[in-house]
Design a protein around this nucleic acid. Structure first.
Lengths: 195, 195
DNA sequence: TTCGTTTATGACCGATTGGTCATTTTTAAT
DNA sequence: ATTAAAAATGACCAATCGGTCATAAACGAA
């Protein structure tokens, strides 16, 4: 990796939590200068403008979340265990696995009325997240762990919505506890289709 | 109502959808000048600074949502009908009843890492929303419509989370359809406790 | 109608924004 | 060690930010 590429990656890693916490509009290039200890001119060597940095950072945050989720899922064996692992890894919105909280929620809500490109990126991540859940259940059905009468695609949507809604509730409450109520409800729905 | 109070209300009504769409940080006082056709000095006659306007507008948007929900609930008779009405009135996130979408989601996600006062306001609204759902079910139980074994407080939390998660999904998808999947799941859970 | 008070105006302020660029320093292939 | 390219610097720019204030217009009670 060249020096330039290393610097670019360092900028992205430093900027990612700032944009995810403060938001796109509220984050100034000067914030990134402070975080990276780089001069303004240097930032613009690696990124054409703020928008290019924003797009890169939005992608980075969502991919970071994805990789953390996959890493957790890998450790679980059965489909049921994987579903529980998926819920658990997102069960501490106040101490989130990605600094600043779920980037789909953060960037999605900021961008939905103002930034079509970011909105599209978030939508793709939202669809992909449901696909992950959906695939876990599908495999569980194929391997005889769940009933094949389960409308698992609809459930994946519901499960994702419940978890994201739980993020809002817990983050403004400054408390992770209510996420356990959501987990319990999901577990009950899951158990109804277990064979 | 004095001339001043009329102007103040006009400013709030004009500013509310702008802040709810663009976000607090991205909205400039010049945006409010354009929307109200008022001079900058005039805005500062009615509001000490941007922050006071922001606090007023955040409250206004959430109260507006509340009043629209109550208005809808009033028309429904049974507890079941009220629950359905509650879901239905929030089932079109792309064409929301409050311009810009759910203010709890919008302001909550922007403020949770940067603005403690707004976060507290949103949390109170989130708790209140669950209380409304909870009260509907409690009344239904007392009047023999639902089983008294239903853990309705936990369900109120789950229902609220599902609806808010649905807002995210639908708004970034630019499509209300998936809200019907969430509604169906909620209806099924509700029906399991009907007598 | 008078007249003090309230409301509205817009020029102005310092600070900060995103972005540029001539210059210097560092890198890395030869 | 040489040297051309890449990377880093920071002064500088116009535009916009939130906010102020002297002044004027409009209001409303007497």
């Amino acid at each position: 990796m060249t020096k330039g590429e290393e610097t670019r990656q360092m900028i992205i890693k430093s900027a990612a939590p700032i944009f995810n916490k403060k938001g796109i509009a509220a984050t100034a290039m000067s914030d990134i200068m402070d975080a990276t200890k780089l001069s303004k001119g240097s930032l613009y060597v690696h990124f054409e403008n703020k928008d290019e940095l924003v797009m890169t950072v939005v992608d980075y945050n969502m991919q970071l979340l994805g990789s953390k989720v996959f890493e957790t899922l890998r450790k679980a064996r059965s489909a049921r265990e994987k579903l529980i692992a998926y819920i658990d890894v997102l069960s501490t919105p106040v101490n989130p696995i990605v600094e600043g909280g779920c980037p789909m929620l953060n960037f999605g809500m900021e961008a939905d009325d103002t930034n079509e490109v970011v909105t599209k990126k978030v939508n793709e991540a939202v669809v992909f997240s449901q696909q992950i859940i959906s695939d876990i259940i599908k495999k569980g059905i194929d391997e005889g762990e769940f009933s094949n009468e389960w409308n698992y695609k609809d459930f994946a949507l519901v499960m994702f919505a419940m978890i994201e809604g739980g993020q809002l509730i817990c983050r403004v409450a400054r408390n992770n506890r209510k996420m356990q109520v959501i987990k319990a409800n999901l577990l009950e729905q899951i158990s109804r289709w277990e064979l």
